[in-house]
């Protein structure tokens, strides 16, 4: 359903720009060439600025490493270790010695599984709470009560229920993924303008038509924002969760490296975790931009 909505909006944009291109031909081409060069210049600028920030950051890092007499490894040593890790990411020498790629794969799989399950629950439930003041009165207090609880507190409950650490980790990601999506979705649904509701009422839309042609398209940008926030927190939580559950995953890798006193590996893992976080966020930001419409 989400795919089809995205697709229509996409084609709209394409059709529009295509007809513009036809009408104005050369003018547009010149304009777009100019726009492209401006765009590249802007991108280059922002990369330069990011590099300045990175240099300052590495400077402080080196300084800190220097003052701790290298018990905190500096950037060069760390990057060397990171390079080694990345050059052979998929080795598997038994349960306690796996390549970073395999560990990352486990974590991402857990996050995506828990996140998907959580979203599958949170989106319909959010729609329900947003659409009905009765459901809102009944369930919203529980949501507000449970939302600030650290997801890690759910770990023992997951263990008791599922009797399996892997499942318990998925469970805490599931719980984590609920709140932002649920709250954003219900907010979206509850703010559907009266005008849109009037259309559905005046032309006798069925429940299904109302859901798919009014509620869902209107709420979609809110849902995507919720999903983006949810997956960010889920990715935060998975690292801590795997430290608790042990066995596999990037969190376990951090903990294991710390026990092996390899801070280079710990810091390398932190860098990788950050990158994956950026990718998740970027992915949903991209969808967010795609589904937003002009009123």
């Amino acid at each position: 359903m989400s795919n089809s909505t995205t697709a229509t909006i996409e084609t709209e944009e394409i059709v529009e720009s295509y007809s513009l291109l036809n009408t104005f031909g050369k003018v547009i081409k010149k304009e777009s060439l100019k726009n492209a060069s401006i765009y590249i210049l802007e991108k280059a600028k922002s990369i330069v600025f990011a590099c300045i920030g990175l240099t300052i950051f590495c400077g402080f890092w080196s300084l800190l490493s220097y003052y701790t007499k290298d018990s905190l490894p500096g950037p060069t040593v760390t990057l060397k270790v990171l390079y080694e890790m990345l050059s052979d990411p998929f080795y598997d020498y038994g349960p306690n010695d796996k390549g970073i790629g395999l560990q990352l794969f486990v974590s991402i799989k857990t996050v995506l599984l828990g996140f998907s399950l959580g979203s599958l629950f949170a989106i319909p439930f959010g729609i329900l709470i947003g659409a009905s003041s009765f459901f809102k009165k009944v369930f919203y207090p529980i949501v507000q009560f449970l939302k600030p609880v650290s997801p890690l507190a759910w770990f023992p409950i997951g263990l008791v229920v599922f009797k399996d650490t892997g499942m318990a980790t998925i469970f805490i990601v599931f719980i984590t993924s609920l709140w932002s999506t649920l709250i954003n979705t219900s907010f979206g649904v509850s703010t559907i303008p009266q005008d849109h509701k009037n259309v559905a009422k005046a032309f006798g839309f069925s429940k299904w038509r109302y859901l798919t042609k009014v509620v869902f398209p209107y709420t979609l940008p809110h849902i995507i924002t919720g999903l983006r926030l949810s997956i960010s927190v889920a990715w935060l939580v998975i690292v801590a969760g795997e430290m608790l559950s042990g066995g596999a995953g990037i969190g376990f890798f951090v903990w294991d490296s710390w026990n092996a006193l390899s801070l280079e590996k710990v810091i390398s893992a932190i860098i990788i975790i950050g990158f994956v976080g950026i990718i998740f966020d970027g992915f949903f930001t991209m969808i967010e931009n795609k589904v937003s419409y002009k009123a």
């Binding site: 229509t8 709209e12 005008d195 849109h196 259309v199 042609k213 398209p217 419409y293 009123a295």
Partner: peptide, 8 residues
């Protein structure tokens, strides 16, 4: 007018 902005 009350048109749905996401529909053509």
């Amino acid at each position: 007018y009350s048109l749905l902005p996401w529909l053509t």
